[in-house]
Design a protein around this nucleic acid. Structure first.
Lengths: 210, 210
DNA sequence: ATTATCTATAGATCTATAGATAATGC
DNA sequence: ATTATCTATAGATCTATAGATAATGC
C-alpha cells in the first residue's frame, strides 16, 4: 500500500473541501479551482481521482451524509420502542443538530442547495437515504396523530416540522441583516419540539371536530 | 417615444424571463443565453439594456418583488387595527400565497436562492423591503405573545412561522420522489396558521411557567 | 515499475462589446 | 437622425486531459 501520500488522504482532502464548498455555494458556483485552493490539492488531481465534477459532487454528498448520520443517528438515540412523542423528539433533535453543525455536517447544506436548484445528480442516492428518513418521520407523526387523520393533514404536518428543523437560520439572518442573536441549538430543539407538539395536537383537535 | 417596438416591451420580456430563471436556477446557473432563449430576445440586447448581469439580477428581483407585493399585499388585507391573531393570519396568508404562486411571483424563489448561496447583490434592496416585512411580523407575534416573553423566544417563533410559510414544498417533493399529493394553498394556509397559533400559545405557556 | 503529483493547455462556455443593419420619428 | 436589434467575436473562466516529473514499493 502507501505510496507518496497514498492518495487516500488526498481524496479525503478533496471530498472534505468539496462538500463544504458545495454546501455553501452549490454545484455550479463551485469550481475545481475553488476546491483545489480550499483543499490545497492540485486541481488536476480532482479529475484524476474523480473523473468529472459530477462524480465529486455525488461522492462528496454521500461522504458527508454518511459522516453526518454517524455523528447524529437519525433517531436521536431514542429506541424504536419508545412512545411516538419521544421518538419525535429524537428525530427533531437529530435533524436540527445535523443541519446546524456547519463545522462537521455538509449534507444538509448540499440538500438545501439541491432543493433551491436541482441538478438531479443526487436522485438515485436520495431514494435510498433521504426518502427513508422521511418515511420514518411520517410513521412517527402518523402514530402521534392517531387514526382518523387525513393523508393531507399528515403530510402537511410533516412538512411543517421538517421546515422548522432545516430552515437555515444563520443564512437567513445574514441576508436580513437583523442583529444576529446567538443561535443556541439546544434551545432551538426545545422550541421546535414545543411548536411541533402543540401544532400536531391542534391538527388532531381540528380533525376530530369534522 | 416609441421606436420599433419601443424597447420597453423588450426590457419587460427580459426581466420576466430572467426573474423566472433566476428563481428556478439561481444567479450563476442562469446565463444570458438562457434568458435570451426564454424571452425570445437577442442575447446582445440584455447587455445593451442592463449593462451587466448583476444589474439584470437586481432589477429582476425588484421588479418581481414589486409585482408580488402588489398582487399579495403583505398584510393579507387585514387592517392594522385588527387584533394580533387576525393580523397574523393575514401575514401568513399573504406569505404562503406569494411563495406558492410560481406562475406569477418569482421574488420568493430568488430569495430562497439567495439564502442558499448569497451573491450579496441584493443586500441594499433587502434592507428596504424584506427587513421591514420581517419587522412587521415580529411586531404582530410580539403582540400575540404579550409581555414577559424573552427576545429569544420571540425570534425563534418568528423563524418557525416564516420557515413554514416559505418552505418550498413542491421542490422538496420533487427531490424526495414522494408520491406528489395535490398542493392546496388554502389548506396550507389554514394548516400553517393552526400550527403557528398552537405553537405560539405553547411558547406563551412555557414562558409563564418559569 | 508504479502511480501520485504537477505543468500546460485544448476546447467549451459565458459575458460583454464593437460594429453593422434596419426600423421608426422628424 | 436616432436607436432598437442583430452578427461576430475578444477575453475571461472553467473542465478535463495529455504529458512530464518525482516519490515510493519491489
Amino acid at each position: 500500500m502507501a505510496k507518496r501520500s497514498d492518495g487516500i488522504e488526498t481524496k479525503k482532502k478533496i471530498l472534505g473541501a468539496a462538500a463544504k464548498l458545495f454546501s455553501e455555494n452549490g454545484f455550479k458556483q463551485t469550481s475545481n479551482a475553488d476546491i483545489s485552493k480550499a483543499s490545497g490539492v492540485n486541481s488536476a488531481l480532482i479529475s484524476y481521482y474523480f473523473g468529472d465534477k459530477e462524480t465529486i459532487y455525488r461522492e462528496a454528498w454521500q461522504h458527508s451524509l454518511r459522516e453526518s448520520l454517524a455523528k447524529y443517528p437519525p433517531d436521536g438515540g431514542v429506541p424504536a420502542t419508545a412512545p411516538a412523542r419521544k421518538r419525535l423528539y429524537g428525530i427533531i433533535s437529530a435533524t436540527v443538530r445535523r443541519y446546524s453543525d456547519h463545522r462537521h455536517c455538509f449534507d444538509g447544506g448540499i440538500l438545501n442547495q439541491e432543493i433551491a436548484s436541482p441538478t438531479g445528480l443526487l436522485d438515485d442516492v436520495h431514494e435510498n437515504t433521504i426518502f427513508s428518513l422521511r418515511e420514518n418521520l411520517l410513521r412517527v407523526v402518523s402514530e402521534f396523530l392517531g387514526d382518523g387523520i387525513s393523508n393531507e393533514d399528515l403530510r402537511m404536518s410533516v412538512y411543517s416540522i421538517v421546515a422548522m428543523c432545516i430552515s437555515p437560520q444563520k443564512k437567513i439572518q445574514r441576508i436580513e441583516k437583523t442583529e444576529p442573536f446567538p443561535y443556541d441549538v439546544e434551545k432551538r430543539i426545545e422550541h421546535v419540539f414545543r411548536f411541533s407538539v402543540a401544532g400536531l395536537n391542534a391538527v388532531k383537535r381540528a380533525s376530530r371536530k369534522n
